[in-house]
């Protein structure tokens, strides 16, 4: 009597096992790579209603971040400047520049410019800019080198895991208070000693408990 199953079917369990392993690895790999905020969030660079260039203003002209975002040191939010701040200079400079048309319209009508938000935390996370600046975390740590960007782009994932990385080990991100807006500051060789000293002097203990950021 002939065999019902040919010989090659002996290998079916092996194939199934190998296939399952590959499939599981592929699925895990897919979500590890494409589900990460480094993929889903980083790189967000929306077109803005005004073609404003941070590279020109903060980079080439060397205007300090706080000239426009002037509440960042005392407030939870780094305020988007009101049109009035643009007009500080642009009443005189670039009065016939087409790119500034929405700014002039906003100035005469009183309707705010609707900038598109790039750095958006979930509504249940209560981030405070002023606390981070007081501790000595520079703008560049979370926003990247904005002074080099023609259009502002999300450079860091702003995810909870990423926040906690720094809250657990802030030593690499602390800098002297007078360097917080310096985009080109490089940590000195004794950065870790410096950070330890600042942390003990100013009692910097980044919270790792839920209520540190969630209420």
């Amino acid at each position: 009597m002939a065999q019902i199953f040919p010989v090659w079917t002996n290998k079916i369990p092996v194939y199934i096992a190998a296939g399952t392993i590959i499939l599981v690895l592929a699925i895990v790999g897919f979500f590890w790579y494409y589900g990460s905020p480094w993929y889903t969030d980083v790189g967000y660079r929306p077109a803005q209603p005004v073609r404003y260039s941070h590279k020109l203003h903060a980079g080439d002209l060397g205007i300090d971040c706080r000239y426009c975002h002037y509440d960042v040191e005392v407030s939870a939010v780094a305020n988007i400047p009101p049109t009035q701040i643009c007009m500080n200079c642009h009443k005189t400079i670039g009065t016939d520049n087409e790119r500034l048309l929405p700014v002039r319209e906003s100035w005469s009508s009183g309707v705010p410019i609707q900038w598109v938000r790039v750095h958006q935390l979930p509504d249940f996370a209560y981030f405070d800019h002023s606390a981070h600046l007081r501790a000595g975390v520079g703008c560049v740590s979370c926003h990247g080198n904005v002074a080099n960007m023609e259009i502002v782009e999300l450079k860091k994932p702003l995810s909870m895991g990423w926040c906690l990385d720094c809250h657990r080990n802030p030593d690499t991100q602390l800098r002297p208070r007078n360097e917080i807006t310096n985009m080109n500051w490089t940590p000195p060789a004794d950065q870790v000693q410096f950070a330890r000293k600042v942390r003990s002097e100013n009692n910097i203990a980044p919270p790792e408990d839920c209520s540190g950021c969630h209420r």
Binding site: Y33, T40, V42, P46, P122, D123, E153
Partner: peptide, 20 residues
Amino acid sequence: FRGLPTDNPPIHVVPDMDHQ
């Protein structure tokens, strides 16, 4: 593909209560 500049807003894989 990670971090390529894009106009598309961030994808919320698990939306939770991100937008309240």
